[in-house]
């Protein structure tokens, strides 16, 4: 396989070249948290400190706030204006394998019977350049879900740390087209071997495991086990962190921002952790938090597999790491009764 490599000192040349064609996003602390941010043309220092973003790259496809269309009323009635299409293509540099896989999981929903033009428009307009992990958080558990710290699912181009260089591997045709810079040299067999070692080392760093065998069946059998769900939900404070910052969560709400005869229809992320999420005129089927916790777990590990034959979790560990009370989905999944 004709893989390339690039010396780490030259790494800034890659986004430098790509930014002529793409709006390049890289991991950055500029906003005050870690998020994918428009590259400023200089700072590539994230390679030294970056493990993963706090805000998942999903935000570049399904943003926290999205203007769907604006409207105004004149003498002939209501008029609708769609937002201008984004001409420039975007390139995300440094997406982690767990988050790239998460996009493949989101595609199942947004590219199903209903084709969501906003999400799909951005997906088709974006190239993903992954960087394999060399370090893990102690909340990472990607290996238990068939993923790996150097997995290439969903990315167009993959960089793997092999010491002084990155091995650069084109996964798709879009990835191949990115391999034009003169800073790349041909990777040798020894480089390929180093990449294998790097992959294995990274795997070893993921220390947490989760047993997902028969998990959908177990959850189905335990659905009515109120004692179990009440117990695991006891310390949850029903905030939206684990859902709003989950790379595979996609629930949204739609609201009009209006003043007089004009306005904007916005969709913004919503969370099934909130009691208001299911409030209806007559009743709310999930007023108690154990029902909401159950829904969240089952949606990822039972309902999504039922619908799409895939678990809607990639083991990124954000829900564990960012939780104010250390509610830990691994412990929950591990303790689901067998139902027998």
């Amino acid at each position: 396989m004709a893989d390339k490599k690039i010396n780490k000192r030259d790494i800034a040349k890659l986004p430098n070249e790509w930014c002529r064609e793409f709006s390049v996003l890289v991991p950055s602390r500029e906003s005050g948290t870690v998020a994918m941010t428009r590259w400023d043309g200089k700072d590539i220092g994230f390679l030294d400190w970056y493990r993963n973003t706090v805000v998942p790259p999903r935000d570049s496809f399904l943003p926290l706030i999205e203007e769907m269309f604006s409207f105004y009323k004149d003498k002939d009635g209501y008029n609708i204006e769609l937002p201008p299409p984004k001409e420039q293509k975007q390139l995300i540099f440094g997406i982690r394998p767990c988050d790239a896989r998460a996009l493949a999981i989101l595609d199942m929903t947004f590219n199903d019977g209903y084709q969501d033009p906003y999400y799909l428009g951005r997906r088709q307009n974006t190239v993903l350049v992954g960087i394999g992990c060399t370090k893990a958080y102690d909340s990472c558990f990607c290996t238990s879900l068939g993923n790996s710290p150097t997995d290439t699912t969903g990315v167009d181009l993959m960089l793997t740390d092999i010491g002084e260089d990155f091995l650069v591997e084109a996964i798709t045709d879009a990835g191949k087209e990115l391999l034009t810079t003169s800073s790349l040299s041909k990777a040798t067999e020894a480089d390929q071997a180093r990449a294998k070692v790097s992959e294995e080392t990274a795997r070893q760093k993921v220390t947490r495991n989760i047993d997902i065998r028969d998990i959908a069946q177990k959850l189905r059998a335990s659905f009515e086990d109120q004692d179990f769900w009440q117990k695991v939900a006891a310390k949850c404070i029903s905030c939206g962190i684990c859902t709003l910052l989950c790379p595979t969560c996609y629930c949204f709400d739609i609201n009009d921002e209006m003043s007089k005869a004009q306005g904007v229809r916005c969709r913004s992320l919503d969370s099934c952790s909130f009691p208001i999420y299911t409030r209806m005129p007559m009743e709310n089927p999930r007023t108690e938090k154990w029902r909401r916790v159950r829904n969240k777990v089952c949606h990822k590990y039972e309902f999504y597999p039922m619908l799409f034959d895939a678990i809607a979790c990639t083991g990124c560990g954000r829900c564990i790491r960012l939780c104010p009370v250390n509610w830990d989905i691994i412990q929950i999944i591990e303790s689901v009764p067998t139902g027998a």
């Binding site: 906003s31 005050g32 948290t33 998020a35 805000v55 926290l64 404070i237 029903s238 905030c239 939206g240 962190i241 709003l244 910052l245 913004s268 992320l269 969370s271 909130f274 009691p275 208001i276 104010p324």
Partner: peptide, 27 residues
Amino acid sequence: KELERCIRCYACRNACPACYCQRCFVE
């Protein structure tokens, strides 16, 4: 700048023992 990155997860409110309204004004 600080509030531009707020994701409205309401963790601040829900972690607060003084915020005990059964229905918050935002709802």
